[in-house]
C-alpha cells in the first residue's frame, strides 16, 4: 500500500507515492537521494538525522514522512548558496574545526539553526543544552560550541 505525499524540500515542491511506513529520513535519503541527512542510532537519540520541519529541528528517523505532508523541510543540502557559498553556520563549523569525522555535522548544523532562531545570542550553557540531542562520538564538543557561537554571530551581521 502507499499514500500520496506532497511537501517542500529545500524550496522545491516534491510529490511522491510512499509506503505508509516510510520514515522521513528514508524518504529523504532513498527517494530523494539527499544523503547528507545521516542515520546514526536509528532510535531518536543521536540527532545525526536532524532536519528542519517548518523551521523546527526534529529527528527524521522518528517521524513518518506522512506526518510532515505539506510541510517545508530543510536538509543540510538546502543551506549553501547556488554558487556553493557556505551558509554562515556551515562556514563557522569549517573555520572552528567544529567537526572531525563529520558524521554528526549535518544534524549539529541544523540543530544550531533552530537554536539561533530562538536565541540569537545564546551563551555557552544554552548552546550545550540546545544540542543535548546531538551526539558527537569524536567528542569534539568544545569546537562545536565555538562554531555555533561564531556562526550565530555571523548570522546576526
Amino acid at each position: 500500500m502507499s499514500i500520496p505525499l506532497s511537501l517542500s524540500v529545500n524550496g522545491k515542491a516534491v510529490t511522491a507515492d510512499v509506503d505508509e511506513r516510510t520514515l522521513l529520513v528514508e524518504f529523504l535519503r532513498h527517494d530523494l537521494a539527499l544523503t547528507g541527512t545521516h542515520v546514526g542510532c536509528d532510535t531518536a537519540q543521536c540527532g545525526a538525522c536532524t532536519v528542519l520541519v517548518d523551521g523546527r529541528a526534529i529527528k527524521s528517523c522518528n517521524v513518518l514522512a506522512a506526518q510532515v505532508a505539506g510541510a517545508k523541510i530543510t536538509t543540510i543540502e538546502g543551506l549553501a548558496g547556488a554558487d556553493g557559498t557556505l551558509h554562515p553556520m556551515q562556514a563557522a563549523f569549517k573555520e572552528c574545526h567544529g567537526l572531525q569525522c563529520g558524521f554528526c555535522t549535518p544534524g549539529m548544523v541544523l540543530g544550531a539553526l533552530d537554536l539561533v532562531a530562538h536565541h540569537p545570542h545564546a551563551d555557552e550553557r544554552t548552546i550545550r543544552e540546545a544540542l543535548e540531542g546531538n551526539f558527537c562520538r569524536c567528542t569534539g564538543y568544545q569546537n562545536i560550541v565555538k562554531a555555533v557561537q561564531t556562526g550565530a554571530a555571523a548570522m546576526a551581521k
Binding site: 529527528k59 522518528n62 540543530g111 540531542g133
Partner: peptide, 9 residues
C-alpha cells in the same frame, strides 16, 4: 523533556 528535537514533536 527529552531534547530539543523531541520537544519540537
Amino acid at each position: 523533556i527529552g531534547d530539543r528535537q523531541v520537544r519540537n514533536m
